[in-house]
Amino acid sequence: MSVPSLDQPDQSDQSESAIVARLRAAGCVFAEEEAEMIMSAARNPAELEEMVERRVVGLPLEHVVGYAEFCGLRIAVDAEVFVPRRRTEALVQEAVALAPARAVVVDLCCGSGALGVALADRLDEVELYASDVDAAAVRCARRNVTAAGGEVFEGDLFDPLPAGLKGRVDVLLSNVPYVPTVEIELLPAEAREYEARVALDGGVDGLEVLRRVVAGAAEWLAPDGILLFETSERQADEAVAAVAATGLRARIATDDELDATVIIASLS
């Protein structure tokens, strides 16, 4: 009969301490918290073992348990769909502070739909729309956005949105991919191996998708509407220049606690 080594916890043991040991051995920094989430999400011992093994081999925790915590909400996140980052909560906070009552909100490059759903949760009487070019993201977003009373469309940026939204959008959220193509391979394995590349790749300088968004934003924004998107600190000045080149005005908002940089643009 084989005896588990001291270096390898017995995988038949599904106690919390054993699962924590396996996660810690795999390099999970917050092994205790992750073990608790996995054990809460698993419906039976077989599923628990499968989920622990998936995490041990490197899948993002959110893909393992099927959800992400974002702005105090539980957002469904399917396999390969971009996992909403905590720093992006700063974008939602800025939008909440600026959104009018009964806002028309559009979430472009929506991924799971986390931004639009979080904003709708904090405002009253939101008219919510979202779009993404990735079919898997759209399927996932529909689970979240539909429950929040919104609609999700599949297609490239503005293309699939109802034409009747032109000139009516009060808040345009667009968490565009902004990682330069050559830097994709430098990302943590959880991102580069398990999230859709289209959700990460911002082109040669990381701003190619952004330029397309700002080029089309003016005809969709209401007269007092705002466009908000996230970028890196080092790209902020170039992002502002890209906005200015389309005739929009832009400013930079930062959140040191979340390590976030948000660009806020408007028609005037």
Rank of each mutant, 00 (worst) to 15 (best):
E195Y: 00
D7M: 12
V262Q: 07
A35Q: 05
E125Q: 15
V176P: 10
F82Y: 04
E183F: 07
V133C: 00
R192L: 08
V209N: 05
L248F: 11
Q14N: 13
P188D: 12
A147V: 05
Y129M: 10
L73F: 02
E89F: 00
L186W: 01
L6P: 00
V243Y: 05
D201Y: 01
S17L: 13
G167T: 05
F158L: 04
V81G: 07
S174W: 00
L186E: 12
L267T: 02
E16I: 13
A148Q: 11
V106H: 06
L48D: 11
A163Y: 09
V65W: 06
A236V: 09
L221M: 08
L48Y: 10
R22H: 11
L23N: 08
F158N: 02
S17H: 14
G113A: 07
E34T: 07
V138A: 08
Y67Q: 08
A236E: 07
T88F: 11
L161F: 08
D259I: 09
E219G: 08
A218W: 09
G167P: 01
R122W: 13
R249M: 12
F229V: 11
A46C: 06
D224W: 07
T146H: 14
E233K: 14
L165W: 08
I38R: 02
V92Q: 12
S15E: 14
T231V: 04
M39A: 08
D256S: 14
R211V: 03
L23H: 08
D237E: 15
G113V: 00
C71H: 10
N175G: 08
E183L: 13
R102P: 00
L165R: 09
R85N: 09
I264E: 07
F158A: 01
R85L: 12
V145P: 05
R139N: 14
L207A: 09
E208P: 03
E69P: 03
S232F: 07
G27C: 11
L227T: 04
C109I: 01
N44T: 06
E208F: 10
P45Y: 11
S266P: 00
I75R: 04
L210K: 03
P84A: 03
R54D: 14
E238D: 15
P84K: 02
D237W: 05
A245C: 08
A137C: 06
